[in-house]
Design a protein around this nucleic acid. Structure first.
Lengths: 229, 229, 229, 229
DNA sequence: TATGAATGAGTATTCATTCAT
DNA sequence: TATGAATGAATACTCATTCAT
């Protein structure tokens, strides 16, 4: 059933009727609900492992030599895989808009792992300094849109990558032309996701996500609630 | 009524219920159908003039000096305007996926005008040679996705532009680090949309769209049918 | 399993999903069905003993001195216990509407035992003469409704009793201001439940329920069928 | 359609499928939703006028001589009318449990009008002093339960009133036997419905419902939200 | 015998489109 | 011609009951 849901979501995105999934799985609609409490829960279940795979890969690459090449290669491969997968595209877009979280922590773990690769590439001088992790998330969404928009690519069965290569060039540090107007949107410079208070950026350690324990706890409870939905 | 539809579509995209549009216009739903045979026809009607405006602007810029600056400025302004307009975003994305055409010829005219600016900028050495008009269309869709994905931009009321600036950098000739894998998809190198035969690229004049008069006529009749739907 | 069903029904009434009961019992839904042919049968099984307990208590009180006090105390205690038990409330209400019978004979035994207390109290001059057992059954349902309707009582965890005390006052002989319009509905004056013929009221012995042996047998077979459902 | 909904709700209560209502009205389900945004809104619409009728009647009776007789007659007639109407029964019961409000203010107006009759009857010495408006609301629910529980009454087409007459006797002041344990639950002695703070009872004027302007405003906004549902 | 996965009819709600007036 | 009431298919979700293992 998960397989049926996966393929249905990958082809048609979050919009597939649940009945279609049940039909593909050869079961009744009720059976789907027996296993997953809601359509969104099923959707989450079909993509968490994909995102975790990305996260794991990124973590594995954190120590590999030539951080610049590693970063660009990783970015390209993520786009290449996700562009064929409307479920991932929908999820990334919805997550960007704050309408969706695959599973508590999964999105953040991915961000963290990606940020490490970005930082290393920046420190190695391979990637321009004025982009942050939030830029990168948006860029990912954009690449997917582009690859899918390009005729003969994405869902059409073509080989994606062309537009992503273009984007990678945009990120390269050498000969940066335009200076981006605003400061890079780095997560550890942004605000507490719960109360909105400014968070002072610590130089070392994992960047703080909340302004303090109270808000972290509040967010944790919210995640718990989400997990039960 | 067109005004009501326009604002509704701009705010909520193709997803607005038709009843909402009728309500805003202060008329009955039937009256909307009296003037437009379907919701999609109404949608088309609300965006053609926007696209034509872009087309006209692009044509006006075709003779202005400093083709590189002109090109980048035009691109940015299109994104800036469209990012606040969910109707345009939806239309561009759907058009890219081949699911939608604003009106026969309108999309192509825009492409043509945009292509002229692109060519001039390329000839002036400002834009890398390995991108084509199809790339540019995809890139437009991607920019809109990115701007809307970036927190505090797009629909959130922020000032778009950051990601577009990045994209523009990607297009600059002096940044062309990677050679794009596949050949740029140039329209006049593609195939006849009707019979699929290869079309020999003419060096001058408006690029041929069909392999000959028979196919052009066939396509015209198809468009007539579409227009009535 | 019976215990799990009991607590579930007591808390949420007949409306609990069967799956919830199975979950509480730590068994599969199929196992519940192995023991009870339907949800209603399980429901019946969880309340018969409660009603039988009431019946037994009433029988024990049939000889106790001060019939008036006994009657009122019994009535109050039934309400007090049942008000906290949504299963009993639902059962009593449905039984009153003729939609439900806990088990063949159980409801009638309760009625009989209650009727004895009522008669004794009436003979002792403590309860007004113009109420019958059918009135009392309705009154029970009403008391439960009232206790549950009163804020801070019933399901809210408050102490029930206030409205029941009022009802008891209504039953007291010395309060009989109004003469009840219609005759009290006495069961032994009603009609044969099978053929509808009038049943002559015997002064002594257990009141006849059917007009004769033929109808009694017919009713018995019907009960057997019900038991299997 | 309102007529169809009314009769359906009256017969089967809030539980009627919306499709049944549509069928009775001879229209599609969508048409019902055209006129009423939700099933509950339709339900409200079918009972507000009934409750307002009660309220108006009660107000008209506020000046009539012999307050005791007026009070009891009014109570009986409300029960008589409502007992045949499962919609009203459901509404009164749900309202008592705080799960439902027919329309902003309607329930409170009814309470106010009823309270006036109660107070007058108490001042005239016709009704015992130890019952309050909250008791009366519960009592109403109880009477309806009883009348419907009595065989041959309520929905069965019989003449209701018997149990209500009994309840009226319970309310009569002359020779009150039991003193009700707790204080009467009078609304103006209870707590602020918003913040729960105690409200000091004013001797004159309309009894305060909220502890102050802040809470009154909060409740007003809540009602506004309800009205839009 | 016990299990729990599967079933499928039923419910409220939405919305593009049609059509009588 | 303009209206807006009517339509009905579609969708997510629930739950009593069945049945293969």
């Amino acid at each position: 059933m998960l397989q049926a849901a996966r393929s249905a979501f990958e082809e048609q995105g979050l919009g597939v009727p649940l009945g279609e999934i049940a039909r593909r799985a050869g079961v009744g609609a009720g059976t789907v609900y027996r296993h997953f409490p809601s359509k969104e829960a099923l959707f989450r279940a079909t993509i968490v492992d994909r995102i975790e795979l990305f996260t794991d890969t990124a973590r594995d690459l954190a120590d590999v030599a030539d951080p610049g090449a590693v970063f660009f290669r990783f970015l390209s491969s993520v786009v290449r895989l996700a562009a064929r997968n409307k479920a991932l595209c929908d999820a990334l877009e919805a997550a960007g808009a704050g309408r969706f979280e695959p599973s508590p922590g999964v999105g953040e773990d991915f961000d963290d792992a990606l940020e490490v690769l970005l930082r290393r590439a920046q420190e190695a001088g391979a990637v321009r300094q004025d982009v942050g992790i939030a830029d990168l998330r948006a860029l990912l969404v954009g690449c997917l849109s582009m690859e899918r928009a390009l005729p003969g690519c994405g869902s059409d069965g073509g080989v994606p990558g062309r537009m992503t290569a273009l984007m990678c060039d945009a990120l390269r540090a050498e000969r940066a032309v335009t200076e981006l107007e605003t400061e890079p949107v780095k997560r550890n410079e942004s605000r507490c996701g719960v109360c909105g208070a400014a968070i002072s950026a610590a130089r070392t350690g994992r960047p703080a996500r909340y302004c303090g324990g109270a808000c972290r706890q509040k967010a944790h409870r919210a995640r718990e609630r989400t997990r039960q939905t």
